[in-house]
Computed example of a mutant assay.
Amino acid sequence: MTSIRIRKYSWQLAPGSIRDIRQRVFVEEQNVPPELEWDDTDDIADHYLAITEDNKPAGVARLFSTLEETAHIGRMAVLPEYRGKGVGETLLRHLITEASRFRELKLSAQEHAIPFYQRSGFHVYSDFYDDAGIPHVDMRCLSPVLVTPESHREYPMILGKDRESWLFESDTHLISLLDSLTGQAKQRLWLYDRLLEHDLYDRHQFRELLSALARHHRLSEVRLLIHDDKPLVKRRHQIVELMRRLPSRIELRLVKDDYPVEERPFLLADREGVVYRHSFNNPEGFANFADSGRVKLLGEAFQRMWDVSRSSLELRELPL
């Protein structure tokens, strides 16, 4: 792997090598029209230049934010002679570290580059689309604070691929893992908890992820199984409002009081993802992104509780 240093510039003070690399890779090699390559975003973005140990420019990228919690990576390019030498990975990991204060990182990836971005914790969340004549998908990382160069995982937090456990003991890390799994679910999300706690679940990001899943496919299914709905009646909750707008896709039920129930909360995403807490009252636990055996066992326990559960009359009577 080539030894790489990363330097950061504003567009106004950026060296010509940044423009030269983009011109060579995008405009000349990939035939991107110049009017699409050069845009106003350059003026508001931070620009990064990867330099080899012998001071040769090797790759570039830019980073900018449009929302308080979201940052975007773009215009990432490595010169042909430096590809396959770790330049792109070093550059991307540096950008992730720079943007770790954001809850979400987004980028547009060319089809061939999907595995490259997955190895740094980005997952696909769109269909393919054409950009300058090249197939692209939108990708995002919902846990940049957890994806660090020190993690040494092949596909960190990629549903169905990351087979190592993620331990957590804070609300911040718990929320990152909840969102990352929810954002990758394609058909099923089952959540079991004592309450739909406002700090964990009454968030715009979580609502939008649930909404996208519920609308993704006609067979999409979101089940919320809780012990107590009184806090939901007393204070408006984004998930309850979403549930009432998508009643055929999102359903909330209450456990049966005299039926044996699980003593620890969990979230199941499709057939392989799980976030498991050791108790209802603290954020300690673990997450797995490729653990079909555990998900199967917990799914069976969830189904048993669901089969004898009841709907919430109080929530049904609330006005929209």
Rank of each mutant, 00 (worst) to 15 (best):
V32P: 12
T66D: 00
K56S: 12
E29R: 02
D42W: 02
T41Y: 05
G59K: 05
P33T: 11
G59L: 09
L36M: 10
G16S: 13
R19Y: 14
A50R: 03
T66F: 00
E28M: 13
I21E: 02
L36G: 05
A45K: 01
E37T: 05
A58P: 03
K56M: 12
S65D: 03
S65P: 01
T52Q: 05
A14V: 10
E35N: 15
A14L: 13
D40T: 06
D54G: 08
V32T: 10
E28F: 05
E29Y: 04
S65R: 02
Q23M: 14
R62Y: 03
D43Y: 06
F26E: 04
R24D: 09
A14N: 08
R22S: 12
A45M: 00
I51M: 08
D42E: 13
E29C: 09
E37V: 06
A50Y: 03
Q12P: 06
L49N: 08
A14G: 10
Y48A: 08
E37Y: 01
S65V: 00
T41F: 06
E28H: 13
H47Q: 05
D54T: 14
G16F: 12
P57Y: 07
E35C: 12
A61I: 05
A45L: 00
A14Y: 06
I51R: 03
A50E: 09
N55Q: 14
R19M: 15
G16A: 13
E68I: 10
S65F: 00
I44A: 10
I44R: 10
N55K: 13
R22V: 11
S17P: 10
G16I: 10
D20S: 15
D46T: 01
L36H: 06
V32Y: 02
T66W: 00
I51K: 02
P33C: 09
E53I: 10
S17D: 14
E28D: 15
D39S: 03
R22W: 09
W38C: 11
V27P: 04
N55F: 11
E68N: 11
T41N: 02
Q23C: 12
E68K: 11
I18Y: 09
R19A: 15
P57T: 12
A58L: 07
D39V: 00
L36E: 12
I21Q: 08
E68F: 04
P57K: 07
A61Y: 01
R22A: 07
A14R: 11
P33G: 08
I51N: 09
N55L: 13
N31T: 08
A61L: 05
G16M: 06
